[in-house]
């Protein structure tokens, strides 16, 4: 129960963190769902995302593409099914359970990688990380209108030519 409280908080608190929240704001506007992630959980999420997509030297990393803000946007999106919200949060709990004493985000990069490896060794851990990677790719290669891929940084990295016309903010997913 304690761990659960550790992870699941209110959006109000999450918004108070330093995470860039364009994605959240783009989609939920003022109507925030009641419970999302605590600031602690947001930090754990951010560290996991950085482990999945580290930054330089090779191309943009989770921070450069606003991956945490993007995933918070998914959690807050009115059309995200509750089951998906629950699953995203549960995974953070499982991961936290694997983390000895300290909290995941306070570990060194090498320690985090070890934990991600042991997490991925279980079927449920691998499936959760694979699902999260799907969102990482959306933040990396999706249209910047969704709050990830700022200025097309992900597209430039892979020399990708996006198609025209680009979506306008009033006609993105959830508004069409």
């Amino acid at each position: 129960m304690q761990r659960r409280q550790f992870i699941i908080g209110s959006l109000g608190v999450a918004l108070a963190s330093t995470i860039p929240l364009r994605a959240v704001q783009a989609h939920v506007g003022a109507a925030a769902p009641e419970s999302l992630l605590t600031p602690h959980a947001v930090r754990v999420l951010g560290s996991v995302l950085e482990g999945l997509l580290p930054g330089a030297p090779e191309g943009p990393g989770a921070r450069d593409i606003n991956a945490t803000g993007y995933v918070l946007g998914i959690l807050a999106h009115p059309r995200t099914p509750d089951s998906e919200r629950h699953y995203l949060r549960e995974g953070l709990l499982w991961l936290d359970e694997l983390t000895p004493a300290a909290s995941f985000e306070t570990l060194t990069a090498r320690q985090r990688e070890e934990i991600l490896r042991s997490f991925a060794a279980s079927e449920r851990g691998e499936a959760w990380l694979a699902n999260l990677l799907g969102y990482v790719f959306e933040a990396l290669f999706g249209d910047p209108a969704y709050g990830g891929n700022p200025g097309g940084v992900g597209w430039r990295w892979i020399e990708h030519q996006p198609g025209f016309p680009h979506p306008t903010p009033d006609k993105v997913y959830g508004k069409l």
Binding site: L52, L53, L116, L140, H160
Partner: peptide, 25 residues
């Protein structure tokens, strides 16, 4: 050309899920 869907398929390596530098390479 869909890059998200293509990347989503590339995340699987011979020994399971890839992430980090190996995935980026």
């Amino acid at each position: 050309p869909n890059p998200i869907n293509r990347a989503d398929r590339l995340k699987w390596g011979e020994d399971g899920l890839l992430w980090g530098e190996p995935l980026k390479r």
